[in-house]
């Protein structure tokens, strides 16, 4: 990767954060969604009457369902907004497709990391959960978040192409997101409960690598006029 390519990707990333800082569309929506969901779930389920093991099972699944839905809710902002407001033409004319993908991927990943930083401590507090292995929990959240960011960015690019894209999105979303969710939940549960998460984390990193390589290969084709 040349320094020019890196600068292009960094420019896309910085532009998205600068616009977000002023408009506050994505962060406000996602954080509010996360807090509301967790509070409602904790009130409905409650820590009373469940063992810590059961609670960590529920909380892991709930956390990743929340992250998946938050990613899906924020998805249109990634590319659809660029197409609808005709700013995509500026990116198409001025930047390399792979740099656009990298910049957008970094933006989505940072947004998800922020969401994880808010939602995870809140979930741990509301469900009264001890963390057996904080280091592995960070790894699980990092690897799961990176895979979710890559899959979301790729799907967002497909959705933004309009007609016929919805069918393709539906066909791709299930096989892309279900394995990720299964692995991320397993890794998070193991980190909370103290089980062996090594194998699952390796699978999660393999998933991340595969989806990122696929993203960089497919995006120029999807993004091309």
């Amino acid at each position: 990767m040349s320094s020019g390519w890196t600068a292009e990707a960094a420019a896309v990333f910085a532009k998205d954060w600068r616009a977000e800082r002023r408009a506050r569309h994505a962060v406000a929506t996602l954080v509010l969604f996360a807090i509301t969901t967790l509070v409602i779930a904790s009130l409905a389920l409650g820590p009373i009457g469940a063992t810590p093991g059961e609670r960590s099972d529920v909380a892991s699944a709930l956390l990743w369902i929340l992250l998946l839905f938050a990613a899906a809710a924020g998805l249109p902002r990634v590319f659809v907004h660029e197409e609808e407001s005709h700013t995509a033409t500026v990116l198409r004319l001025a930047a390399r497709p792979s740099a656009v993908f990298a910049g957008k991927l970094a933006w989505v990943a940072s947004l998800l990391a922020l969401l994880e930083a808010v939602a995870t401590p809140l979930a741990l507090a509301l469900f009264d959960l001890p963390v057996a292995s904080p280091g592995r929990l960070v790894l699980a959240l990092g690897a799961g978040g990176a895979g979710l960011a890559a899959a979301t960015t790729l799907l967002a690019a497909i959705v933004a192409q309009g007609r016929g894209a919805t069918t393709l999105f539906a066909a791709l979303a299930f096989p892309l997101l279900v394995p990720l969710a299964v692995l991320a939940v397993a890794a998070t549960r193991a980190a909370l409960g103290g089980g062996d998460a090594g194998g699952v984390l390796v699978q999660l990193f393999l998933y991340d690598s595969t989806i990122m390589v696929a993203g960089f290969l497919l995006f120029p084709v999807i993004w091309a006029p």
Partner: peptide
């Protein structure tokens, strides 16, 4: 596509960014 200079009525820039910030973005991308 990356080398031409295109002026078209449907080209738009970022609402949240100022004129100088939009041009700075384009300069960085180029």
């Amino acid at each position: 596509r990356r080398r031409v200079g295109l002026l078209a009525p449907d080209i738009a820039f970022y609402d949240e960014l100022s004129v100088s910030e939009n041009l700075e973005l384009v300069a960085r991308l180029r």
